[in-house]
Design a protein around this nucleic acid. Sequence first.
DNA 1: AGCACGCCGACT
DNA 2: GTCGGCGTGCTC
Length: 838
Amino acid sequence: MTPAAAPPPRPWQVVVNLPVPAYDFAVPHGFVGGPPLGCRVLVPWRGELVVGLVVGEGDPRGGHRLREAVHVLDDPACPWVPAATVAGVQGWAHDARLPAGLVWGDLLGVGWQAAYAHMVRAVEGADLSAFARKVPTERWTDAGAFAPNLLDAIREQGLLEERFTARPRTKTVVEARPLDDVPPASRTVTVIQAAAQRPTTLTPKQAQACAWLAEHGPQETLSGWAKGAGISAGVVTAALNAGGAEYVRVQAPPPEAWTWLREHGPLDSYAAWANGASAQGVPLSPTVAGTLALRGWADTVEVPAPPPALPEPCALVADPTLPDRLPEEAVWRLHGGRAATRFGVLAPRVGRLLSQGRGVLVLAPDHATLRRAWEGLSGLAEACGTRAVQIAGTLSEAQREHSWHLLGMGAARLVIGSGHALSAPLHDPALVVVLEEASDAHKLLSGSRAFLPDVAARIASAHDAALAYVGAAPAAESVPWPGAVLPPPKARVHVVDYANPPEQPELGPLSSVQHKQGDMGYPISHDLARVLRQVQERGRQAVLLAPRRGYSALLRCPTCEHTPHCRNCDVALRFHQETRQLTCHQCGYHEAIPDRCDNCGDRMWKARGPGTEWIAQEVGKLLPGFPVYRLDKDRQDDLSPLHAGEPGVVVGTQLLLSGEPPPNLALVGVTLADTWLNVSDFRASERYHRLLRQLAEWHPTRAPMLVVQTFQADHPALRVMVEGRDTLAYPAAEERARKALGYPPHARLAQIEVTARDPRKAQAAAQELADAFHGAGATAQEVLGPAPSPVARLRGVYPYHLFLRARHDARLGELLRVLDTRTWKARVRVDVNPRGGL
DNA sequence: AGCACGCCGACT
DNA sequence: GTCGGCGTGCTC
């Protein structure tokens, strides 16, 4: 009786860092155990080996023969990404209709490059003569000696044996070679020494030279001898040729530079050696240092690199022993107060979990928020017997990898970071904290376009960890969760109402309307100007928030109203006065300012819509001699004098908020608030309100005056600030409005973008899609559009948008399934939970 | 994302 | 005849 054939092991689903779905790979020969979920593997890919991540099990009877995964890089007991995290991310990628590789490429920031030694040999008795040129023999050889695609061809036939060993991070250093190993030729030197017996044929001068040499000892050069003896070079040469002196090789003392390196080395480079030695009185140039190494006095060697220095934890500021009054539910929120207060309230909970040996993950949308969280929480980890690490783009690759290992070993249990921290191998996570959950910085602009709080929620749920939203003001979406609310910091808000200029009795109503902007002062109102002068007089600091970079939003011909537009996009070109250029802020296209209007030939241009350059220029006129700094994507002035406390004004875009506030900040001016409202997005007013709240809490202790210039002085997002209403007043009202309109959190949205180079093709494909949705039973409430994108042409392509609005996730999933029914005649991209545009 | 393949228009 | 534009398809 023959034993029943064991069922073939199920293949592994592996993602690589490319925008493609997970592919199946056969289990490597001889691998024992279940699928190593979350481990990195080396897989054959287009003739090379690439790092992939095991995210699941595939179909055991696949349609075609599979390639084998070649090597498992991580110990399955300690995967690179926790298995629950893998499940959470995979679930999100599936629901968002995104190729898994695209999602993992965005989320996993550490580990796609693995350092390993790779040795190969031919299997015993294999005949590789069919392969070209140089092929592996039966001796182990470094794989680098062969073309990767040749190795892959041999591998595919099962004729290759491979061995992988992890190679720790190394660095190259210069170290002094032991004296015994220095080549003898380098340890001797040729010198000129007087002959033992002086020939009788020497002239008197020659004899005199030889006598000097005998007395003063051997010389290294002829010229040294000549100079020392005070005799011409010709005579000493003749004396040498006549046999009065001879070249001999003698033992030389080791060079001083070598002795120095033996005492102070090893060092990172020849330059470091040269600088270090020179600084201590041993003259050495990098070139000479290199020559010494060439002669065998020093070697460059690979040594294991020490672990990189990680950010130091801050002092413990919050008291973890205070009572913990935060909700115990699976999802909760904490908003209001100042950042330091919020972390103080959060500390008892985080401290308790860390003390229990559990893990806490904190997701920050930007660098400034990350820094505040680090200041508020990192000291806590030390106090609770563990340590905190950061995983963020501001750290080096080596630092991120080291932090990753500390988490994987369980040595660190608090991780604070960007989206890259979400997949970190944190042990037993009990709490995932999403900071400033309404921030647009959580939305990845390219690739997967993931909204990180959505992914964080999936990961928390997969780990059965609690999820907390913490920030200055909640998103309307977080309002329904149970939560704790702190009173907002006091704000002194002054509103400049451009729409209602003060009564001017001496002028008639008509002229008042005609001149109202001029009368109130534009782009800097008289009110704002007055406060700015006070700032100057008192030597304080001010920040002005401009709605855009550049000089102006556009140029307009005063005669015919013509405005220069981008040749690739359907937008007006921004005017940059400093570079004398018109620039497209969508695609980067730029051109010199045209001499005359293309349309009517007029030579005049008028700027409209002030930007940072314009505002800075106005401030310069207003406050002569007062330092004016600028901070936007185009120009980042050095603000260190301000941070040292010197007086001045900074004009910038929202980029300002990602830095520290100046210490003597007395005034924050929003030069034109309406820019935050004049966007076609249902989240615009929430974003505006959050901006005001963030400005009010920006300075950690002060409450600077907030001057807001606007045409919509009665906007509720601003009114609640003026009236000093509580933290939840506006977000709760917004949430009620969303309910009435059927927007999140009372609906799930997805944007479907259809793009093509031909606008008619894009429009037709979008319409076809809409028809398909309706054909599948979608209602008119559920499918909105298609409509051309707000920017009808972008980088030369014409995007059309279609919106799906479903009551809940399940219905959205049902609707999205229509996309899989067939292929479409244009590029179709889905963005679930889109932000911006609608 | 890359990198093939393949189909059309502009040149020696 | 070829060179080279970029549209389409594939990667286990």
